[in-house]
């Protein structure tokens, strides 16, 4: 079931699997990158501990900008730095950046094709106790709509670190979303990562689950449970939502006949929307979109929120079975 070329950890489904927050992958990646590339700058809006930009700020104070609680100005400063040839990573919570400063990102960065990396933590419901105001579940939609932007949602801390390096390598605006809570560390240094190229983690042809961010590991758990009851489910880590790896989506549709998308984001305008756009155009098959169902979250523990809002391996498996059932009926409603 697990593909060898995905190079996942050997104890993938073990109880004692190491957990690490994707924001830690960001902080480590940024620090390492700063040591080898003098053009890399970081900015942060009074959240260096939370976004993990702190290590960079301490190591490279002359290339760090504490912007204060002023994300609009932070985005503009980042644009100015980029237009001077620097590679700025502007860090904050996604509810503030791009939540607060989307206009500045749109005009000063995207329209100018400024080489800015918007790096945002605290995405999804798993932000937890802070409640709905801080649980950014709209950021993929916001950023995906912007011309010139690449949108990346890595699945674990190791992939986040790779995404930081890849973002620096790419000349042009990049949005990287990551998260607060510790989640399974299940990829390895050998797991392939290239912007715009999804990674197929498991083989299967009964259904394909296309997931991003924190939901990739839960999708693997869902596939495992279905495998144990005789179904083979393909799991795709769609770390880049824009540009979407359309080839892998069409391949999954043609070989599996149905698709489920999973993301910690609103069901409108995110990964599910992006996949639906491709399927509608290229290869219509039954599609189930799992995400935050057009709702605001609330305070609670991450696991409790995932449970309450239907973001669990059980709900993913249930949706996958539903998609498989719909295969036979697909198109009949229209015909009738």
């Amino acid at each position: 079931m697990i593909r060898e070329d995905a190079h996942l950890v050997s104890n993938l489904f073990a109880e004692d699997l190491v957990k690490k927050a994707t924001r830690d992958g960001y902080g480590e990646g940024l620090l390492e990158l700063g040591g080898i590339n003098n053009d890399v700058w970081a900015l942060c809006g009074d959240l260096t501990t939370s976004t993990r930009a702190k290590a960079f700020a301490e190591a490279f104070p002359d290339r760090f900008v504490e912007a204060g609680v002023a994300e609009q100005n932070m985005a503009g400063i980042a644009a100015g730095l980029a237009l001077e040839g620097k590679i700025p990573f502007a860090s904050s919570f996604a509810c503030f950046s791009p939540g607060r400063n989307w206009d500045q990102i749109r005009v000063s960065i995207a329209y100018s094709e400024a080489n800015v990396k918007i790096a945002s933590s605290h995405t999804g419901l798993e932000v937890g106790g802070d409640g709905a105001s801080h649980q950014a579940c709209e950021d993929i939609a916001m950023m995906r709509a912007l011309p010139n932007f690449i949108v990346v949602a890595p699945c674990d801390a190791i992939e986040t670190k790779k995404a930081v390096f890849a973002a620096a390598e790419h000349v042009g605006p990049v949005y990287i979303r990551f998260a607060r809570e510790k989640t399974a560390l299940f990829t390895t240094g050998k797991t392939p990562f290239e912007i715009g190229r999804a990674v197929t983690l498991t083989d299967g042809d009964d259904a394909a689950i296309i997931a991003c961010g924190t939901m990739v590991y839960l999708s693997l758990l869902a596939a495992k449970s279905m495998f144990d009851s005789g179904m083979s489910v393909r799991v795709v880590d769609m770390h880049t939502i824009k540009p979407l790896d359309e080839e892998i989506v069409v391949k999954a549709a043609s070989e599996c006949g149905c698709i489920v998308t999973v993301e910690e984001h609103q069901v409108y305008g995110g990964l599910g929307g992006a996949v639906a756009e491709v399927l509608g155009r290229e290869y219509p098959v039954p599609l189930e979109i799992i995400g935050v169902n057009d709702l605001f979250g609330e305070s609670g523990k991450a696991a409790e929120l995932w449970e309450k809002y239907g973001l669990t391996s059980t709900s993913i498996a249930k949706a996958t079975k539903k998609a498989i059932k719909r295969k036979g009926a697909f198109g009949k409603r229209r015909a009738a």
Binding site: I77, V107, S108
Partner: peptide
């Protein structure tokens, strides 16, 4: 910026210029 030589920023929506000037000044 990029369309016409001599233009250093994209602008129009008000309030966005000084921040970019600050970024350039910091660099």
């Amino acid at each position: 910026v990029g369309s016409l030589p001599g233009i250093e920023n994209s602008g129009g929506p008000l309030g966005q210029g000084i921040s970019q000037a600050v970024g350039r000044a910091l660099a």
